[in-house]
Design a protein around this nucleic acid. Structure first.
Lengths: 355, 355
DNA sequence: GTGAAAGCGCTAACAT
DNA sequence: ATGTTAGCGCTTTCAC
């Protein structure tokens, strides 16, 4: 009957102390690995702990010490979960931080600054130690209190707005310049540009690079051939279709973003239109229209970003650092078509499989 | 000087009480929205709270109430982050739970049961209310204490092992049967099967479906044409290459998993070999070898899964439910080639873009 | 090397 | 409608 007296109460430190016949403080010492406890005592305490199945109450500990219990958890905030452009980056980051004993949580903010702030709050509340942000929010100052509270943040792809922070970026201007230059070298003269948020830093820099490359060939950007504020695959397809049917169509398009480029290729495959993606395209070489792209290897980006954050976590001081990676062009076909050569319609090509 | 006396201490509930000239309990009442506080008092307390910038100490609250502070957070555990097969599912789930005011955290367990258990632990510790698991672990009983502690779990794609729990599955046997039958109808007689973990429930059922379809046509599975325990793209490519060079090669292959199917297609494109994927292949129609696949629409899976979990969260009682979705075949080309027709080599087709 | 007492900030139970 | 008291489970201080 004695076993029934204390019904299913979670054992406390005092229970352990009683069983081990020591004081609470001694149990606490063992729990925290403080030195100054006899080996025999430690063993007795350990035994009592396992015997009772004791687990320390984190809330009580936290109340006393004032320190939040932190998990070896980092988080990656992305705008969308299904952007293949970022899938490789996320996987790379997860692998890199995992190798150092951390786990990575991935979560979408849907481009909403408010939601982003809420997420950061609940992640910190949940014990996360650091956060990677892929965010085009107009103001990141909401982070400051959390940073003061010990959170580590690293911005990826887009720099922090209204504040200074570590960031790992891709040279978007150079990417767009390389893409445009490549098309120019393949005899294109009417090259269109399709971009995402015009007010965002990245799109702006892409436009600069695009214009610089044109200027270097003595050309000016035709406003008809520049289109921004396209964010979803449907929009990219529509834009591509419009250009295809335009009275004076472009012969090639530079598209900001792998996902949009793939969407555009849906319309463009077989049309003879050149296409270069600014960003990562998974399995780009397997496409019917194998996409030429300008991007940084996701593993490299991931490695650098993980490095920056983990070093901060390990106490590295110093001013915010800004790492800018230079993208590379991978020619796969869609950027190497000559202008003016008509192709069979997509339907004709599909028929190849039908017979 | 008086402002310097209490240096930067975080204000407590008592500070608020003093400023509002009420007792601590009254502040507590306001904080918890308990009724029985005069409107004027509530206002004074509110004012004091904002004036002092007071934030309740969650640890203390938790210590007293015994209840863990829970965030409106759910989590999806996946084996790998870069599996396109699951990208659509993850995005769908995130959207579905977001619509109900929850956020979704995504994290990879790398197929390790131990890591999976650790992740669940730290997620619960971090206040997560529910978890979706895509897991082939051999034993999920580690979850039981957490479930007792109020965690809600729903298994996706693979059922819970050694225990009963809500799950949302795809009828893998039917998927493989459909795929094989489809190839049989296209005159294939030597059909190979490439599967993942042989000990896993899903692979086993796929094999059954494959064999059933063959048997229905009076054929038996040739052991040479059945290969399992292939988990990565490299392995899938190797297997495809071997079959291509076999003395008596298959004319078509059924591949378990979208990612492996894409990898196999890298070798098979242009070879004339038939290919049907069991699982989701993003942008399958845009591939040089447009993959015929048998799968459930990720949005549907996501919707059903979210529904099951959210209903539990809202208090739905009853025994574990098992939802099994019937997959559908999408013919895109790779499954509709006739056996024995030789194709141009991949190189020849690529040259189309080069000129 | 070990223990006793006090208290972290909050809320449950019981007054009033 | 509001206040008083006690105590959640742990760690800190200081004493032995």
């Amino acid at each position: 009957m004695t076993s029934m007296t204390s019904r299913a109460r979670r054992p406390t430190l005092w229970d352990v102390a009683r069983v081990a016949r020591v004081s609470a403080k001694t149990v606490s010492r063992v729990l925290n690995g403080e030195r100054g406890v006899a080996a025999a005592t430690t063993a007795r305490v350990r035994a009592a702990i396992t015997q009772l199945g004791f687990e320390r109450n984190e809330a009580a500990r936290q109340l006393r010490t004032g320190s939040r219990p932190r998990a070896r958890t980092l988080c990656l905030l992305v705008p969308e979960l299904d952007d293949p452009d970022r899938a490789g980056l996320a996987a790379g980051l997860a692998g890199a931080v995992y190798a150092r004993g951390y786990s990575l949580l991935l979560t979408p903010a849907y481009g909403s600054a408010e939601r982003e702030a809420e997420l950061v709050h609940s992640l910190v509340e949940g014990g996360a130690m650091g956060v990677f942000l892929i965010s085009e929010a107009a103001d990141h100052r909401y982070l400051i209190p959390y940073l003061r509270g010990g959170l580590t943040a690293v911005f990826l792809l887009h720099p922090a707005a209204q504040m200074n922070a570590d960031c790992v970026l891709v040279d978007e201007q150079e990417a767009a310049r390389l893409a445009t230059q490549h098309l120019l070298r393949h005899w294109h003269r009417r090259i269109a540009f399709l971009g995402q948020r015009p007010e965002a830093d990245g799109t702006g820099r892409q436009l600069e690079g695009y214009q610089r490359a044109l200027a270097a060939s003595g050309l000016a950007a035709d406003p008809e051939l520049v289109r921004t504020a396209v964010h979803d695959p449907a929009g990219a397809q529509a834009a591509a279709r419009e250009w295809l049917a335009a009275p004076s169509p472009p012969t090639a398009i530079v598209v900001g973003g792998g996902r949009l480029a793939v969407a555009a290729s849906r319309v463009l495959a077989g049309s003879g239109m050149g296409l270069v993606a600014l960003g990562e395209v998974p399995d780009a070489d397997l496409l019917r229209m194998p996409l030429t792209s300008v991007s940084c290897s996701p593993p490299e980006l991931a490695t650098r970003a993980a490095e920056v954050l983990l070093q901060r976590l390990e106490g590295r001081a110093g001013p915010p650092q800004k790492v800018v990676l230079t993208p590379q062009l991978d020619a796969r076909g869609s950027g190497e078509v000559r202008p003016g050569v008509t192709r069979p319609a997509p339907e004709a090509r599909r028929a190849w499989f039908r017979r």
